[in-house]
Write a protein that binds this DNA or RNA. Structure first.
Lengths: 320, 320
DNA sequence: CTCCATTCTGCACGTTCGTGCAAATAGCTT
DNA sequence: AAGCTATTTGCACGAACGTGCAGAATGGAG
């Protein structure tokens, strides 16, 4: 029987993580070298064969998490990060922890809605593999803009999610915003578009960041040529503080009368709130306003956020 | 705020396991020494804060596991162990893997029935802590015999389970076997005994090994002074191959007409089969006959077994 | 069969990690 | 406050581990 690589990895993982043997001892039992065992264990970890979870029982969770949970009614994971790190390093660490926190939440037959943006892009680079069956990754909002079709950027993100979970990927080949609401109405009747919209309707998980208008590390939406002068004026005139999947909201979470949303291709807040698990990843204190708006709109059921931003969140006091 | 030991352990675990930082880096962020971080991580692991699981998707499980699953209709975990190890080493490794496999199955509000014996004793030494609420560990069968009350031996096992899961422990202070069935009938009406029996009725998990009559590494039951000459003759005359929690069965799983069972304090097979999760731990090829009987009697929903014994199991061909 | 491209393996080295030990600190008692 | 015991801390050392590299094995294509 030709013990396959996969089954060797499984045996090694069991011996290492469940029986506390050293790699040396495992190498002898498997009749190979210790370095091969080291590599087998690596592959076991990043094919999702070994799952490492941190479960802090609710009643022993740190003060900070409990406060946010109560104030904003959201299942929060605070990522410990030194306040002194720069935004890029912070984002990387939040993204890595987010990727590993999301992993256990993805099951077979899941329909996973994924937004695009700097945060989710970083998350997508750190996903660990997990084999699922018949899962689908669906893009939440269009990524085209005036300069490019946005295809490569957004589709790279989607592809990474698809590979990590062994899922089919459904892209959404439309611009982020239509120039005319009427075009959207027309397109929304097209069967090719409807297929994507139907999937979005049946999402079991949604994963997104938030855009914040005053973000000093500006979201793509506000800087990437998606909006023109007039659009930005429109936003300024409507007290918009941020967006989720290119759908905008105000500080109190409301979004009625924001005309730009009628041309946006992202899911309406009402639609998003139908999704069972809605995971919001946020890194960087400058996103605080957008984040508060998103929470006020009850767009997230789970929040993964860096420690500094989490602290600012409680210092504001919640909405509950 | 005096960052407590527990919250430091949580932070360290997040940074180590979810952000891939080295202990050195974590030490700097926590303003302590690397060795302290090493110790924090140890404590995070064995207080159950960090949970490491090996999940082999059913469809990629090794041949061996699939065969047993189909033949015997039981959820099987095969423990990789070199065939050349002696029984004691094998037992130790099976026990360790069993302890870590059981961990994730224990939830809050569980009522955990635990048998005693060499196998379960070994398992109890390797349990990892997991905080649960309002769980109860209840002893499945009496441990007294003609020489001792069996209290310390069995109660050590129970206590270890109780500590690991933060559970209340209910001992069962009766002999393993009554001399007269009538005494059992009488005792079974006592309220102090009824309390334990009622708990057993409501078990959500049962954990036990198997005794095998021809075991060369003899189960306590057959060697420990629990049975006298006449009893052993009775067993020999009834084609008994083994027992679970001091209740005996034949190779085909039947147990009708085995009079010794009327004096045993363990749960009847019928009662045991009511339990949702019934975890059977077996180490050592000499237990094969007892194991086959137990599986024929459908006493287990999950089986944790060493590789050599697992192979003998399939070579016999199953009962399904 | 031969050739080339790819993947896998073991070695060797530098890094990272666990742990015994002694000093330091914390918690209690008198 | 002093004294005593039980923990906790950092250091230092040896053990365990990850990874670049060069050679071996593998698997097609000609």
């Amino acid at each position: 029987m030709p013990r396959s690589r996969h089954s060797d990895a499984l045996r090694a993982a069991q011996m290492y993580y469940l029986q506390d043997l050293t790699m040396d001892a495992i190498a002898r039992e498997l009749r190979t070298s210790r370095s091969t065992v080291s590599r087998l264990l690596s592959s076991a970890r990043d094919t999702g064969l070994v799952q490492i979870q941190i479960r802090s029982p609710l009643d022993t969770a740190p003060q900070l998490e409990r406060l946010i949970r109560e104030q904003y009614n959201v299942d929060v994971h605070v990522v410990p990060v030194l306040d002194t790190l720069n935004e890029a390093e912070t984002l990387d660490r939040v993204a890595m922890q987010a990727a590993r926190t999301i992993g256990p939440l993805v099951d077979s037959n899941a329909i996973i809605g994924v937004a695009w943006g700097a945060t989710i892009s970083a998350v997508s680079r750190h996903l660990t593999r997990k084999i699922t069956h018949d899962s689908i990754v669906v893009q939440l909002n269009g990524a085209g803009n005036m300069q490019t079709t946005g295809i490569t950027y957004a589709s790279d993100i989607m592809r990474r999610f698809g590979i990590a979970y062994g899922a089919r990927v459904e892209q959404f080949p439309v611009p982020a915003f239509f120039d005319h609401a009427s075009t959207k109405t027309a397109m929304w009747k097209e069967r090719s578009v409807r297929r994507v919209l139907d999937l979005q309707d049946r999402m079991s998980i949604a994963i997104f960041g938030v855009g914040s208008v005053d973000s000093s590390y500006p979201s793509h939406v506000y800087a990437g040529g998606y909006l023109d002068e007039d659009d930005l004026k429109l936003l300024a005139g409507s007290d918009v503080v941020g967006d989720v999947a290119t759908v905008f909201f105000r500080a109190d979470g409301s979004s009625d009368g924001i005309t730009l949303n009628e041309r946006s291709t992202g899911p309406s807040h009402e639609q998003l709130r139908q999704v069972r698990r809605r995971i919001c990843v946020v890194s960087g204190a400058s996103k605080i306003d957008g984040l508060r708006g998103a929470l006020a709109a009850r767009l997230a059921t789970e929040l993964i956020v860096d420690e500094a931003t989490a602290r600012r969140l409680v210092s504001f006091g919640g909405s509950a």
